[in-house]
């Protein structure tokens, strides 16, 4: 049986797709057979972040509607050979994702994969609900900012009431908090919610903290999951999060500001 993990947030633009790409790449790099599914029908972008946009022939909706087989639609990653991508359809509406259709695809994937990562669209509508419905676990991506935290709390409510596990009265979906775009210097100046604040409000266990970093944009520009930039802070922070997800103990890092020297403070600002 595969571990089914949804990457969700409610709010858009907080880093769901970036996180899906890096988490799935990190898990696959550890030797687990992993598939990452883009649920954002009509606005697919996971293919672009993972640099396989020109290799998309068939998509998730084609498989659901029986126009292609799973093997035809799955794209094997060029960098990590245990990683597969199932792209979203760019031309259909979100209604094309029926619960029965998604279930059929997930069941089939569960036979051969160890991990199924579901990259949710923003919002709380049908697409987002389909992405989280079959999940065993959820990574809730949150920016340290009021609207993102509120929307994360909303999506937690939906996980607790509208997921398959909730409807069937099974153990609840296991929730993980991933704080992204974290700027420790601004937190120290009292300008940004701290990780402790976000943890306190959402009251779910912390999986990791990804620092705000120019590296993330540089990586997505090139279609490179940032976790593969192993020398960078954001890449290492994602690697830590993956390690924790697969059961390793790792201490949290990148949560304090690096002290700048006197000269750089004078000229570049604190």
């Amino acid at each position: 049986m595969a571990r089914i993990i949804v990457v969700t947030s409610g709010k858009g633009g907080v880093g769901k797709t970036t996180t899906s790409a890096s988490i799935s790449t990190g898990i696959a790099k550890r030797g687990h057979k992993t598939v990452v599914i883009d649920f954002d029908v009509g606005l697919r972008n996971l293919d672009l972040i993972m640099n396989c946009e020109r290799r998309v022939v068939y998509d998730f909706v084609n498989v659901i509607q029986g126009e292609a087989t799973l093997n035809q639609a799955l794209i094997r990653d060029k960098r990590v050979d245990t990683l597969f991508i199932l792209p979203a359809s760019q031309t259909r509406g979100k209604e094309a994702l029926t619960k029965e259709g998604v279930e059929k695809v997930i069941n089939e994937l569960s036979q051969t994969f160890d991990y199924i990562i579901c990259d949710s669209p923003a919002g709380i509508e049908h697409g987002a609900q389909m992405a989280l419905y079959f999940a065993d676990e959820a990574i809730v991506v949150t920016n340290p900012e009021v609207s993102s935290v509120r929307d994360s709390d909303r999506i937690l409510g939906i996980l607790q009431s509208k997921s398959r596990r909730a409807e069937k009265g099974q153990d609840p979906v296991k929730e993980h908090l991933l704080v992204t775009r974290y700027n420790p210097a601004r937190v120290e100046r009292g300008e940004m919610l701290s990780v402790a604040d976000v943890e306190e409000i959402l009251a779910i266990p912390l999986l990791g903290v990804i620092p705000e970093s120019q590296v993330v944009l540089n990586a997505s520009n090139q279609g490179l999951p940032v976790i593969l930039e192993t020398e960078t802070d954001a890449g290492q922070a994602y690697d830590d999060a993956v390690a924790r997800l697969v059961g390793e103990e790792r201490e949290h890092r990148f949560m304090t500001a690096q002290k700048k020297g006197f000269i750089s403070r004078m000229f570049k600002g604190g």
Binding site: E145, V146, V149, R150, D153, R154, G157, S161, V187, R189, G190, E191, M192, L193, S194, D197, E200, I201
Partner: peptide, 24 residues
């Protein structure tokens, strides 16, 4: 002028989140 806006954010969030959880 170091107004601690993070604290303001936290307090506002605690109130709205508690309110919305009650309605849920």
């Amino acid at each position: 002028t170091n107004t601690n806006t993070a604290n303001v954010a936290k307090e506002r969030l605690q109130i709205i989140v508690a309110h919305e959880r009650g309605h849920r």
